[in-house]
Design a protein around this nucleic acid. Structure first.
Lengths: 227, 227
DNA sequence: GCAAAAGTGTTCTTTCTACACCCATGC
DNA sequence: GCATGGGTGTAGAAAGAACACTTTTGC
């Protein structure tokens, strides 16, 4: 298990049998619920044990690249909002786990792919390995908190969306009803989304479509201000 | 290569030549300035290159333990406020750096120890290796932001402190003058510090001493809500 | 023309901000 | 008794919360 290493000086100090992995919490809106993608963990399917998707860190990939690769691998998604959550060290198992979370536009990626992973409502997850349930709860708290002081909610929607869709997103994630007029005022004042010339027709009066201002994305990322 | 595997299979894929280190940003108030502890980085002293204190992660220590050990090693300090900041991956160097920051009560630990590390004002740090200057800036932003919505400021002070000392701490870290009455109202409403029966005598009228409520510490920690 | 969702302002309440004087002690 | 820092309340401004009706389309 303790692999041998080439003998320059720095290697002497390397704690070489610590495993390093990246895990990604994929959040998405499906069936009007906030859902999370989980992968089966048990050798034995009957156990019904699940885990957060992830990969060991390859020596040629950065942490964020590894996380991005997970998105591609698990749902074929490029270019989602991705943010580092926390790094957990498991002393007993010599394992370090760098955890990210991602916001996946709902209804873009199919419910099932070739992978055996599945979406679960965040409120009713299955039994998870290790401390993954705790990590999931923490991610949820962070996501909710973040929604309250930034406008990242649109990252869960397609490129173009109506204000009602955005409000619904906030309501689902935060788990509470919001006032329509106050919501619009606040979200527009935040100045990260802008109206487009297009409308969406459906039942009732057509709604104006919005999109996020491309120049505003950096700003949202920069407010990576909490633990 | 990159499928996530449970249990024993994981070992096959270990990227064993990735180095894992913990760095700690030690903040402290000295000479009425916010200062940071740095360690010399150059083999050659003339270069005057510095770095954030840190250690490679030992196989038997957790990340937080490693960070705590840095505090002991560099300034002989146990029991400081310690919070994970961010984890940086350096793909080119196969290096992963888990960075914490710590708030060290000022004037408790002497300015110099047997270690060659030194305190520098955060505004005028020396030249730092790698991206350590950037990390320091990020830590500062996080600390300032955190002070605005929590009451962690007292972690930079001794066990007992006056409200004026606490206000001064906030002013130094945030870099702006605060209104005395508003400050007191806010900090008391936050409900994390409490008056003690004691007073501190000095010049002028004696000041009541406060301390943080032991049961409130968990609460502050729990608001580890930002990236 | 009616069902269904979109869109739009105002009032009240709460929170934040600005501001000045008396108090207790040491010397 | 005076110099020094400690301690206290209030009024105006800004921000947030509560609230109901008109508009546009498809059927």
């Amino acid at each position: 298990m303790s692999d041998l290493l080439p003998g320059n000086q720095i290697v002497k100090l390397v704690a070489c049998d610590i495993k390093l992995e990246v895990r990604v919490i994929l959040f998405s809106l499906r069936d009007r619920q906030l859902q999370v993608l989980l992968a089966p963990a048990g050798e034995n399917q009957a156990m019904d044990l699940w885990q957060l998707p992830g990969n060991l860190v390859d020596r040629f990939c950065s942490l964020e690249e590894t996380a991005s690769m997970c998105l591609v691998e698990y749902i074929g998604c490029r270019e989602a909002y991705l943010e580092q959550l926390y790094t957990y060290g498991y002393a007993g198992e010599q394992l370090v786990s760098v955890v990210y979370y991602a916001l996946i536009p709902g209804d873009i990626y199919p419910n099932k792919k070739h992978t055996p992973s599945q979406w679960f409502p965040v409120d009713t997850p299955p039994v998870l390995i290790s401390n993954h349930a705790e990590i999931l709860q923490y991610a949820l708290r962070r996501l909710r908190y973040k929604l309250e002081y930034t406008a990242v909610g649109f990252e869960l929607l397609p490129d173009h969306f109506t204000l009602s869709e955005l409000q619904s997103t906030y309501e689902i994630v935060l788990g509470e009803k919001l006032d329509k007029r106050n919501f619009r005022r606040r979200i527009l004042k935040a100045d990260v989304i802008e109206p487009t010339p297009h409308q969406r027709c459906g039942e009732g009066r057509p709604a104006r479509l919005f999109r996020y201002r491309p120049d505003a994305v950096a700003e949202v990322k920069a407010r990576r201000l909490f633990p």
